[in-house]
Design a binder for these strands. Structure first.
Lengths: 230, 230
DNA sequence: GCAAAAGTGTTAACTTTACACCCATGT
DNA sequence: ACATGGGTGTAAAGTTAACACTTTTGC
């Protein structure tokens, strides 16, 4: 090992791409950096991986320190390792990816590395720190792909949601219009939505039914080879 | 940067998962290790990334040094960074993924780190060095997914191939039987295969037509939103 | 009573599936 | 002449796509 390490030293970091959905818009969770380089820039929540820390664990810890979020399941997106990507040296970053419900979580950075953490509208962003705009672009393409083949829209909506909210989510993320009747027919045909029995309140039009996603049913269907697709 | 690096030092490596297809079997390109640890074990071609080397470039260089292959386009698969994955210390590895034509390439390791490089039958492998069996498992799942949604089977076959060869490739990799007439109808309907005009030679049955994959046509169809699926 | 979004069904076009026999070639 | 794999078509079932009006609610 000695000779391996004598060669050259490097660092790896994790960056977290966390998508949300609110008021009909796709959101992304960013921090405002409190340190150089890229002081005051918006950036993905990310930091150095510890010596005795698994990558997945590091992603969870870093996200918690910088945003206050806890126990968020993330999956790996891609590793970015271009020689010049970090101005301070050779830092390779493993990007992680998750979808969460905006309303459910409060945001409060625990270390001054992040001045604040906030939801920003994905379709209206300035240039981010480092190569984070590139990372985000890749994450968005993955989100679009996943949305079509896995029932992940529900991760982004409140527990109870209307079919119109769900349809708007698909339209915003896939960037295309969808026929209302066909959408409802298809999504209901899977039997993955349960009527909550409740309706919208205080809306100045006919109140829509609120549905819940039936995750248990999805898991058992998946075991017998069911493939979601929209 | 100084304080970053004072924290702790780490190493990253790349490992290459190269699939091939020959005599009706899925193949994987492995090396026999010429060094400790895991001396004499079969392993994925992989090694340490250089200080001033992009990850993608490192994957290409390492593959060349260990197998003699050159100019192989690889895409990233996943990064494996569990704390205990390497017996000699904290080594995170970025796995790469490619499909190539077995017959087209000769194999000869250029450095003694690999005693030899050879094609092995994927479905009949011993335990590999390090966590390479896990990496390979993940690569295989990716191969299955990609095969259904991208016309990648052709990367694994000779330039000219019969429809039966192509169908067998799908059957072996997807691990299921496919109806001959329906398969032919569908694959031909895309218009991505060109008849070469030639037929098989020296076969003791009716000689099959040899087809070529029309990559240019695929690229132009893709631009206008075509999605391959089998 | 009006504005706003919810909710609903049918038809035609297309895609998928299931299925069996004759053909060409080498031995 | 036989063994081997090559090559072909149809009909029924299922899926997708296109399309417009009535209902409920708050103001």
């Amino acid at each position: 090992m000695q000779d391996l390490y004598s060669d050259f030293h490097s660092i790896f970091s994790v960056d977290c791409v966390i998508f949300g959905f609110d008021k009909g818009e796709l959101k992304i969770l960013l921090i405002e950096r409190g340190e150089e380089p890229y002081m005051d820039y918006l950036a993905l929540p990310g930091n150095i991986v510890g010596e005795d820390e698994d990558l997945d664990a590091a992603a969870g810890r870093v996200l918690n320190e910088l945003t206050g979020l806890n126990n968020i399941y993330m999956e790996q997106l891609h590793t970015f390792g271009e020689v010049g990507r970090h101005p301070q040296g050779r830092i390779i970053t493993v990007a992680y990816f998750s979808l969460i419900k905006v309303k459910r979580h409060e945001l409060y950075p625990k270390i001054p590395f992040a001045k604040k953490a906030e939801w920003r509208t994905f379709h209206d962003l300035p240039k981010l720190a480092f190569d984070h705009s590139i990372i985000l672009e890749k994450a968005y393409r993955k989100l679009q792909r996943k949305l079509r083949y896995e029932p992940i829209g529900f991760e982004l909506l409140p527990d109870k949601f209307t079919l119109t909210q769900l349809q708007q989510l698909y339209e915003v993320i896939l960037e295309k219009e969808i026929d209302k009747r066909n959408f409802r027919k298809k999504i209901l045909s899977y039997g993955l939505l349960t009527e909550s029995g409740e309706k919208q309140k205080n809306v100045s039009h006919r109140a829509a039914r609120l549905y819940r996603f039936n995750k248990r049913r999805y898991n058992s269907l998946r075991k017998i080879g069911f493939n979601f697709e929209i």
